[in-house]
Design a binder for these strands. Structure first.
Length: 479
RNA sequence: GCCUCUUUAGCUCAGUUGGUUAGAGCGCCGGACUGUUAAUCCGUAGGUCCUUGGUUCGAGCCCAAGAAGAGGCGCCA
């Protein structure tokens, strides 16, 4: 293959006056003269100027939207308005035709996100999804960079787990047993001794427990991997397969945990703002247009970029569950009976409507809620001295709700065992986990960040199925 | 899983109280065009009105069931 320069580099204009080869996909062909060429290396397209007589009508007709071409030419300062550089074509080769009468993406059409979801294999080629997936990459990279700079070890926790006590919901079974004739034991149950791992196994719902094991030796670790939930969740915020970041830190308490989470979120937002400017500008514009079509009462108070910058300069609002209940109890919607689930007493689990009120109406900024009632939280969270709350924290973001859930972990063996007994967690199968508390236990804390929810927030998209290349959800594993 | 809404041309959508031959913009196809910027201009074609059943002289429109999609809720990240 001929050596090409990427369009992102060509647009920088440093090579003006030099012969170049560029390759990409035609976005549009105007006036028998101008090709807008995009190669995915950046949001923008490069203008190619062709001489129709030299090119020939037969070739010109094949310059349809989506066609892959290679162009040799001279990179020059643009002779027209609207762009700084362009390429005058000397040689043009069509690498792959794209029949316009069959190709579903035409530049001037406005396909809906729902329609693009049905052709997810092609939606990468649109402005919107190009921008989203470049931002997704940048955020992924920024997360690794953030933890690397702080001396964390990236830990690849297992995807197949033999533990069914991770405590985070319904799991997908992993098996090689023949489903049409399952081997049975004497008492009629499935005989997993004959399965691949000689035991019952599932896809992981969390890497946290494994991360704890590593953190109690390496000090600071994080996982960044796929996570699976077999829940029948039909919302714009849930996926059956999603990516989660789970840091775990030894010698850290709940405050350290909150500081780490807030620092990380701000770091990656800042990273996106400085490294994805062009893509975010487009998404910002898209967000504004979407907003305009909504009824006035539902419109966002801030634009996308404004919202991201606001998050950087304001400290997140930190308050306890107990304080939040007081605010909610005395809130106008609660008094006027506007909540579907009215706040009556301490101990109730907060619903989406309550979280949204706190974040979007009361504080108007990201909120960290801490010290939840023990009864509504997981077994591994550290019990507070009051005997009724645990050192948990949830970070709530506008529009998407819970983006981070975490806690200081219960490091005291007896308290942890008692809690597991109370909650019917099979202690015998969890000895490997309890060993951390037997041998050199120490205070430690961690949290889980839903990667796609972070991308939702930063891109201003509203459906989680639009920020992962090939979404998996109940009834759908196409592509 | 529950509630609400939607489904009309390739895409995005109008379609009046149930009444003749179902419309628009864009795209596609054909033509024109050497400084365009979602290029523009001219012309043509294109429909299982989601499916099935029902009411009616007559259904895109009313009723029932089903399918697909979206939004909200629950579960959570």
């Amino acid at each position: 293959m001929k050596k090409r320069i990427k369009i992102v580099d060509a647009l920088r204009g440093e090579q003006v006056g030099q012969p170049v080869t560029v390759m990409g996909w035609v976005r549009s062909f105007r006036n028998n003269q101008f090709i807008a060429l995009n190669d995915g290396s950046c949001f923008g397209s490069l203008q190619i100027v062709v001489d129709i007589d030299k090119l020939g009508l037969e070739t010109a007709k094949r310059l349809t939207a989506g066609a892959a071409i290679s162009v040799d030419g001279l990179l020059i300062a643009s002779q027209g308005k609207g762009q700084t550089v362009e390429v005058t074509a000397q040689q043009l080769e069509i690498l792959g035709d794209c029949p316009a009468d069959e190709y579903p993406l035409q530049l001037k059409n406005r396909p809906s996100l729902e329609y693009l979801r049905e052709i997810a294999h092609l939606r990468f080629r649109t402005n919107t999804f190009g921008a989203i997936f470049r931002v997704r990459h940048a955020l992924s990279f920024a997360i690794h960079q953030f933890y690397n700079q702080r001396g964390f070890v990236c830990m690849h926790s297992p995807i197949i787990t033999g533990s069914d006590a991770e405590g985070a919901g319904e799991m997908f079974r992993v098996t090689t047993l023949p489903l049409d004739k399952l081997p049975k034991t004497a008492d009629g149950k499935v005989d997993f001794k004959q399965d691949f791992f000689e035991k019952s196994t599932h896809l992981t719902v969390s890497g946290q427990l494994e991360a704890e094991l590593a953190a109690l030796a390496l000090g600071q670790v994080y996982t960044f991997g796929p996570t699976f939930r077999a829940e029948n969740s039909n919302t714009s915020r849930h996926l059956a397969e999603f990516w989660m970041i789970e840091p775990e830190v030894a010698f850290a308490d709940l405050t350290d945990n909150m500081n780490l989470a807030e620092d990380m979120l701000k770091y990656v937002i800042e990273y996106a703002l400085t490294h994805c400017r062009e893509d975010l500008d487009f998404l910002n514009q898209r967000f504004a247009e979407e907003d305009k079509s909504k009824p006035v009462a539902e419109r966002a108070e801030m634009g996308l970029l404004e919202k991201l910058q606001f998050c950087l300069k304001e400290p997140f609002q930190r308050l306890t569950y107990t304080e939040a209940i007081e605010i909610l109890k005395n809130s106008t919607p609660n008094k006027k009976g506007k909540f579907k689930y009215p706040i009556k007493a301490w101990g109730a689990d907060l619903q989406s409507e309550h979280e949204r009120y706190l974040v979007e109406k009361h504080f108007k900024k990201p909120v960290i809620l801490t010290d939840y009632p023990m009864e509504i939280k997981a077994f591994y969270m550290r019990q507070n001295n009051d005997g009724k709350t645990v050192a948990a924290m949830d970070i709530l973001f506008p529009g998407i709700g819970e983006i981070i859930g975490g806690s200081q972990r219960e490091e005291r063996l007896e308290k942890l065992k008692q809690r597991m007994l109370d909650m019917h967690i099979p202690i015998e199968e969890m000895q490997w986990f309890l060993d951390t508390r037997r041998f050199g236990s120490c205070p430690h804390a961690g949290f889980g960040l839903g990667f796609e929810r972070l991308i939702l927030f930063i891109t201003g998209m509203t459906n989680i199925r639009d920020v992962i290349p090939f979404p998996r959800f109940p009834g759908s594993a196409t592509f």
